[in-house]
Design a binder for these strands. Structure first.
Lengths: 130, 130
DNA sequence: TTATTAATGCGACTATGTTGCAATAATAAA
DNA sequence: TTTATTATTGCAACATAGTCGCATTAATAA
């Protein structure tokens, strides 16, 4: 099944690129300048995941976020880094730091989902100033 | 607001203790030997969290899991360790290994949610044998 | 220009989790 | 022991996130 180039797909990709963050369907829909159906956005995002273009993380709010992170190569997308979720501005960003871990003998690892929650630099400074 | 000792509360606590795993509302409801309303289970679990008795983690399936892990002291519950989610038997267990990380300067950390997904030792051995 | 089929929109559906409210029951007070 | 207080529960309703079937649309190939 080969992919087709569609305006919606391009638009979603642009939003993800420009933001540099991990975004939810809701966030994408509100930022995008064309009208796209909710289900379509999910389908586009899941296709991106299948193609290794973006990676998906699930935050503590139980929602899915999709990121085309800057650290990753164009060819292969990795999700082996930490993510930081700001509880103030609600943004999720990919941190550069890779996740170091080991599992007990005999355990097979297939994926990681590591999110650090807190307040990002910008928001923390704003709260201190006000 | 002081807590009261109720049969439901005790039953949920026992299930969590006996399993030694992180469990979802669904899992608890199916294991428990008395009938408890869905909403009640959530309320009990959230109260446990408030009281620092258990910790909550959200897995890649977007569901909440609650654990009274063995490594933690009775007094203070910590969620600063990795969790392993077996995609085969669906169980989630607390790993002993603590999460080591650092965040960029100016970032404030309040909580962690780190889940490693894969196949646990038992399940992996079963697949190799069959 | 036509044929093929990937992609889309719509609606319906499932599942998870929360909340308001009246009824129940654990604990304190009399 | 009896009564009063209020934490807890069950029920129903609700909110939200995500998926899926299906007919329609529109990229791409022929």
């Amino acid at each position: 099944m080969q992919r087709r180039k569609t305006p919606t797909k391009e638009a979603v990709l642009k939003i993800l690129k420009d933001s540099g963050r991990a975004m939810s369907q809701e966030g994408i829909e509100s930022e995008i300048n064309i009208e796209i159906n909710r289900a379509t956005i999910y389908r586009i995002l899941n296709r991106f995941c299948e193609d290794g273009l973006v990676h998906k993380i699930v935050a503590e709010d139980g929602k899915q976020y999709f990121a085309l992170c800057l650290n990753c190569s164009e060819k292969k997308h990795r999700d082996n880094h930490f993510h930081f979720r700001c509880l103030s501005c609600q943004s999720i960003e990919c941190l550069e730091e890779p996740v170091n871990f080991s599992v007990p003998a005999g355990y097979q690892v297939t994926s990681l989902n590591c999110v650090i929650s807190g307040v990002c630099k910008d928001c923390y400074q704003h709260t201190r100033l006000s």
